[in-house]
Design a protein around this nucleic acid. Structure first.
Length: 431
RNA sequence: GGAACGGUGGCAGAGCGGCCGAAUGCGCUUGUCUUGAAAACAAGAGGGUUAAUAGCCCCGGGGGUUCAAAUCCCUCCCGUUCCGCCA
């Protein structure tokens, strides 16, 4: 959530910033929020004045009762009862207005960073680095889609995945499964120098999924386990962000740095039939996420660091990649500033998004109520959160199958993954 | 899943209708003393909202009873222990 106070102190700034997202209905939501907020403040003032009087009368009643002056007490009680009626009415109004305001605030997106590039959609995302590792020309044997290679090598069996779980589930076999897990382990090991590894729950409560901004707007994208009021996580960002929900952290503990491998579950509603070949898009996939909870002033540097860490993995895997910055029209609702890392897959002839790194300013932390206390100062402040995929397995897996395909049809294992592959140097067809 | 007992400030732990945002102890901060530290003594310190050191709100969440709720009632959540079931 953005700070409601901004609606009172800098409404024009909010309007200007949100206009850059190019979603006109957001601006009318803002207007509605401003009205509700102003009404809420009026109601609050009136209600609190009455409460103050009731509190005062009640104290007097207590005193009179003790002194056995029951008639006088009765009189005050009558007066207080009347006030109570008025208070009840105001309180009902308060609850209604506050609820309405809260619902709107939950849907108002974050303000984009001043330096985030303007743009209407993903076609306007500027390339800010790369391409790196891009050969002058790809060999013909690299121009084979990974699903063909994988099928030939017996390392991908989506037909049987579908039999078991339905469309858009994948299944890796043999060294294909090993490769998927190797990528996770490699990503974790590469970040273990600075991040605590967490193995969080894969199911979370509604409150937890709301904190990151996935609810209420994107309920259709998540798997719900309604009987138990739980949701399957779409990314480890969800449990990791809420790890410190409702807590006040000491400044000296910041930045909190966490990483986790988890499966990720997405219904991919509305994307049926798009990019569904092979490993490009599935309901369940593995990902290693890195995340930081920080003071606001440390966030820009951490954003740079997270991008650099995600980039380092692609560089180490010697895959062709580039970094794009997400423009205001394509940015996720919770995001303040975002970068994607894309890997080139010569067989698909496509740039595949393999990592997305974002700074959320205080948007998620306010929803999750993550605060920190500056050393030696009174009060608390809302923290900032940042996170990024260190590595999303399926598309990197696909890119390896294409970039590392040899003339004989085998797939060479990238050097940095060799320690995780039980001695295999190539994936060859099963005899 | 069943039963019992619990959930109060940084921690421990009292309070069980009014004088309670809340005793006491530990921990913490500051001062006195000391070369310094420790000890002792003294003082101070929660969070939210707000322009406010005014008022209002916060004793797991929500609802109710009452002039008045940490305290009584209902409900949900969480924890501990026992039973059941199990990787």
């Amino acid at each position: 959530m953005i700070d409601v106070r901004l609606l009172r102190t800098n409404i024009e700034g909010v309007r200007t910033a949100l206009a850059r997202r190019g979603k006109p209905d957001v601006l009318s939501q803002i207007d509605e929020a401003v009205q509700l907020d102003s009404r809420l403040r009026d109601i609050t003032t009136e209600r609190d004045a009455i409460r103050a009087e009731v509190n005062d009368l009640s104290k007097q009643v207590g005193t009179l009762r003790r002194d056995k002056r029951n008639d006088e007490a009765e009189a005050l009680m009558g007066r207080s009862r009347e006030l109570g009626e008025t208070e009840r009415v105001l309180q009902a109004e308060f609850d209604e207005v506050q609820g309405a305001l809260h619902q709107i605030m939950l849907r108002i997106p974050n303000l984009p960073h001043a330096d985030a590039p303007n743009g209407a959609g993903d076609h306007e995302n500027p390339v800010v680095k790369g391409p790196i590792n891009m050969p002058a020309q790809f060999a013909d044997h690299q121009r084979v889609p990974h699903w063909e290679t994988a099928s030939h090598l017996g390392i991908l069996d989506n037909e049987r995945a579908t039999k078991i779980a339905g469309a858009m589930f994948t299944m890796q076999r043999g060294l294909g499964a090993t490769l998927a897990r190797a990528l996770c382990q490699f990503a974790l090991d590469s970040n273990a120098d600075a991040f605590e590894e967490i193995r969080p729950p894969s199911f979370v409560t509604t409150a937890t999924l709301t904190a990151t901004g996935h609810l209420p707007k994107f309920a259709d994208d998540a798997y719900a386990i309604e009987r138990d009021d739980l949701w399957a996580i779409p990314t480890a960002e969800v449990p990791l962000t809420s790890l410190h929900a409702g807590e006040v952290l000491e400044e000296s503990e910041l930045p909190v740095r966490l990483m986790a491998y988890t499966p990720c579950y997405r219904r991919e509603a509305g994307s049926a039939g798009r990019d569904t070949r092979g490993m490009l898009r599935a309901h369940e996939f593995d990902k290693v996420e890195i995340l930081a909870i920080a003071r606001p002033e440390d966030a820009p540097e951490l954003l740079t660091e997270l991008v650099a860490r995600a980039e380092l993995l692609m560089a180490a895997l010697e895959l062709p990649y580039r970094i794009i910055e997400i423009c205001t029209g394509d940015m996720g609702g919770s995001h303040h500033r975002s970068y994607d890392i894309e890997v080139y897959a010569p067989g698909c002839d496509a740039w595949l998004e393999v990592s997305s790194v974002s700074w959320f300013s205080d948007y998620q932390a306010r929803r999750a109520d993550i605060r920190f206390k500056r050393t030696g100062q009174k009060g608390t402040e809302i923290a900032n959160t940042l996170n990024g995929s260190a590595l999303a397995v399926p598309r990197v897996w696909a890119a390896i199958c294409e970039n590392y395909r040899q003339a004989d049809g085998s797939v060479r294992i990238p050097t940095v993954l060799l320690p995780y592959m039980r001695g295999a140097t190539h994936i060859t067809p099963k005899a």
